[in-house]
Design a protein around this nucleic acid. Structure first.
Lengths: 203, 203
DNA sequence: TACTTATTCATACATACGTATGAATATCAA
DNA sequence: TTGATATTCATACGTATGTATGAATAAGTA
């Protein structure tokens, strides 16, 4: 009976959670292995090094994250609808370590880990593609697509993180689900106004 | 002759630069003191601990940062003009460690250092105040002021950091000053569209 | 079964960290 | 100059880090 052939899997899961929550430097290999109920040497044995584990974590997190982008982008509705769908997903999905990892990596001088580079590249390209689609049928205003994509994604990324901050700073209490819906509505409205050629005729 | 009575000052300056660039955990006391040409014990002696030095750094960085917010907010022009002025400042000011520190603190589970809390609170309040002012004279659309303020500031904060990323990811090369002007113009346009009740009559 | 490979495990190593200590030196008022 | 205080300095302490090592065990194959 293969009771535990899943050590690498457990390490990935625990490390994903810890790296997203506390950052690469702050989390020690000992902390990861002990929570994963694995031996201290397991990281070196299965991944080669702590950094390679980190890269594997990014892949593990990033692949489904990009898939969600792509599947929403390939769905129904106007390009703007689909952009708003992605934004809503980023804002409301309960467990979403990718934005945290990306933001933290951006806020450092160190070079981006290659898998994170690729993750950002893929997802920005997805948004920029939708923007181009909207521009070519006249529903989205002119402007450099990559720049517009950055402006659009900045909001759900930052708002998502800001909500862990107490109410007296951001002035909004995320623990209330009605408030959360209001926040989503707010961001969708803001993005629609900033992108649509005719924002007044929104649904 | 008082050749060097400025050790605390030098420590603050070096630490501000390093903390903003690499983060609190990554920067060692030894690195700070050696770059500041001070003794290893200087941090403990003058500030008590590395963490207290960090808090002093936030104060040192945050005070002028908030002053710039306030002085632009108190200046001439419509509320929206002044918001765009602040955004432009955040986007173009050459040395501005505060956004980096704030973003990195947001992207962590650890509680915000109190001085950073206060810094965010002050600056968000400044923006929210301008938004309320615009709402009361009908030039800025309805919406929760704190939420609108977050949406507005998200863009310059994130775009500023994204520009250290190679061109092939963000699709924009910040080293070209003309491009930088275009980015500012882009963000101003985007914010105007998302905030103004009549964005079409922009200057 | 015996043999080979894969994995686990305890432990060791070298290094880096933040802080403490106490002597040495500088600064400044009297 | 003297004496008190403030600051610098080299060094030590205890702890934590990532990784390496080699023996012990498990799994898989013949």
């Amino acid at each position: 009976m293969n009771i535990k052939r899943d050590v690498p899997e457990r390490l990935l899961a625990v490390a994903a959670d810890l790296f997203a929550r506390e950052g690469f430097d702050t989390v020690s290999v000992r902390k990861i292995t002990s929570r994963a109920k694995a031996n201290l040497g397991a990281v070196t044995y299965h991944f080669g090094s702590k950094e390679e584990l980190f890269h594997a974590v990014i892949d593990r997190i990033g692949v489904p994250f990009s898939h969600r982008f792509i599947s929403i982008a390939a769905g129904a509705g106007t390009p703007l609808d689909r952009i708003c769908g992605i934004v809503t997903m980023v804002l409301t999905e309960p467990n979403l370590p990718a934005p945290t990892l990306i933001l933290r990596a951006l806020a450092t001088d160190r070079p981006l880990p290659p898998p994170l580079r690729e993750l950002m590249q893929r997802n920005l390209a997805t948004i920029a593609g939708l923007i181009r689609e909207g521009q070519s049928n006249g529903s989205i205003r002119e402007g450099e697509p990559n720049l517009l994509a950055l402006s659009v994604m900045a909001q759900p990324f930052l708002l998502r993180m800001a909500f862990r901050i107490p109410r007296d700073i951001v002035g909004v209490d995320r623990s209330d689900p009605a408030t959360q819906r209001a926040v989503v509505q707010h961001v969708v409205t803001t993005i629609t106004r900033s992108l649509a050629t005719h924002p007044e005729r929104r649904s």
